[in-house]
Design a protein around this nucleic acid. Structure first.
Lengths: 154, 154
DNA sequence: AGTGAAAATACCAGTTG
DNA sequence: CAACTGGTATTTTCACT
């Protein structure tokens, strides 16, 4: 994982469909050199996979909510986590410091769907304490491109 | 944007490098049919682009923080947003309901970097009120795959 | 939906720094 | 040891019928 790898990953985060030739021209590497590095990055697990970015609003998913959750007792966590992993509207589930146990990022098509998720996706779980929901009114920035340029450890 | 389009997008969210042949076999479409639909999805902007998933920890970005920010006066917002868009460690910036103005998702390589961002990325902005930082201790789920199966409006 | 041309990728050897 | 060259086979994409 050197500077060249980070440049390649950075380019791929932006344009995941660049040809090896284009990537090589951009970073100063031959086509086979690029292919070698990408193969290695995939093998090492740094490059986890290839995806597409989908516009949530154009896909009909207008509602983005951040939901804080308190779990009353540790023994309820496994069931909670299993549920979160199952539910596709839960994009993220983070164990966070502070007053709450978990922070969820949830995307649904309507406030009705959100209410439905709160009712049948969360509140019916055993041991679930209070929740606190915040709606995103707009998202001036939303990317999953990691800062690979200078940041990070070598 | 019909059920077929959603199935294709769903497959591509999981495996962005599937060949048109594989996609066609999975959804029951010819290769050219798949190509046609993907072209249209790109043109309409639903399919925004192609990317890679990079493992943040393996890339040396161990620290994930959610930072709530209060902006004192509306006139300071444009400068704040410009800064957020510039800073690569800011993955997301959402305008949220509730006690705070914005919620940031920030990824950095160390707590020192986090401190640096708070100092030179946030606190030096004019009109910035209080901030509230929460660290993610772990992330049991973190995907950007939207729930396209049944959810969303037609 | 199917065909054929063009392009991209994977794979292999040998070579160099 | 990592990277380039070069060549080829295979796959994938693209334009067109």
């Amino acid at each position: 994982m050197d500077a060249m790898d980070r440049r390649l990953l950075s380019l791929l985060q932006d344009q995941g469909r660049s040809s090896y030739a284009d990537l090589g021209a951009a970073v100063g590497l031959s086509v086979s050199g690029v292919a070698d590095r990408i193969r290695r990055l995939e093998a090492s697990g740094v490059l986890q996979g290839w995806t597409v970015r989908v516009d949530p609003v154009k896909a009909g998913l207008d509602i983005l909510a951040f939901i804080f959750v308190a779990i009353e007792r540790p023994e309820w966590e496994p069931g909670f986590l299993t549920r979160m992993r199952q539910r596709p509207e839960v994009l993220e589930c983070h164990h966070v410091t502070g007053d709450w146990s978990y922070l969820l990022k949830v995307r649904v098509g309507s406030v009705a769907d959100l209410e439905g998720f709160l009712a049948t996706g969360l509140k019916d779980l055993p041991g679930l304490g209070r929740t606190h929901t915040q709606l995103a009114l707009s998202s001036p920035k939303e990317t999953n491109a990691l800062p690979l340029a200078g940041g990070g450890k070598e």
